[in-house]
Design a protein around this nucleic acid. Sequence first.
DNA 1: CCATTTTTGACCTTTTCTGACCTTAGTTTA
DNA 2: TAAACTAAGGTCAGAAAAGGTCAAAAATGG
Lengths: 155, 155
Amino acid sequence: MSSLSDLIEQYLRELLARAESIEIQRRQLARMFRCVPSQINYVLETRFTIHHGYLVHSRRGGGGFIRITRINWEPRSNFPQELDEIIGRQLSQEEMDGFLYRLVEEELLGENEAALVQSVIQQELTGLSGEDADTLRARLLRVALLTLCHQNYPG
Amino acid sequence: MSSLSDLIEQYLRELLARAESIEIQRRQLARMFRCVPSQINYVLETRFTIHHGYLVHSRRGGGGFIRITRINWEPRSNFPQELDEIIGRQLSQEEMDGFLYRLVEEELLGENEAALVQSVIQQELTGLSGEDADTLRARLLRVALLTLCHQNYPG
DNA sequence: CCATTTTTGACCTTTTCTGACCTTAGTTTA
DNA sequence: TAAACTAAGGTCAGAAAAGGTCAAAAATGG
């Protein structure tokens, strides 16, 4: 009962099992599976997102391509999602400090990293306060942690 | 898969890997790759800009030439301050891509890191455009790079 | 029967490639 | 020596070659 999307997904997964990164051409793949090119986008959007552990990169124009790269978030495979849930759209100074403290406690982050993140973000927030600061703080923290996360668990 | 422009870029990069500065003749290069001379200009304009870390000089007329010079960028001394100068308060998508590309070129950043930074920041910017996006992009990139930088140059 | 997922197609944007025409700098000639 | 010629490189607009988006239709599962 597998749909066409499942087949395409399976095909791409097989390629990705052998290489960390693959390059495909949307048109060619669509021809291969006898579907419309946008179907390929659908498969990528529903099955190869960053939450699934993949990065998708593409280039238009002549010689264009779509590159899919496998990344290992392991052993905390759902870290990005957890970040979304925990950080949310706004984050106060106290909330951030508490969260960083907890990460250090759980040994997911070294003390130095935590201090660095704090100082860098604080500097970035100079002049802002209230809701603006909270919104920006949430975004900055998310980017900083994802960046660190990748360093700590390279693919 | 790779376009003609990619091939020409690659060829020039190989020459530039061995010398800090090279001189080419547009016509000859065009003949070599069996394309129109203006294609060479296209490659230079899209892949050897100052953002990519290159300077291009040329002279017309008999004995004319195109000189491409690689600029060596010294990151060490004061990374945070330099980031300020280079990134500025606002940063377009293209500027960011060019800058990341250059960091990868100079082996200050791995390809995976660059791709991750790009994707995380892009995700963080969904829904925004124009000046808002440019401002936030600048801030996010700065935090991401400083975070990575600490990993690479602990102190 | 309804909600969700999949599939399709019309239309859009970006990147590459080409060619006609322009400018500049040496070289030759009247 | 000035004009004409030749040998470069520059510009720009349009065609071509990709991939992206979005909403509607179709299929699927509960």
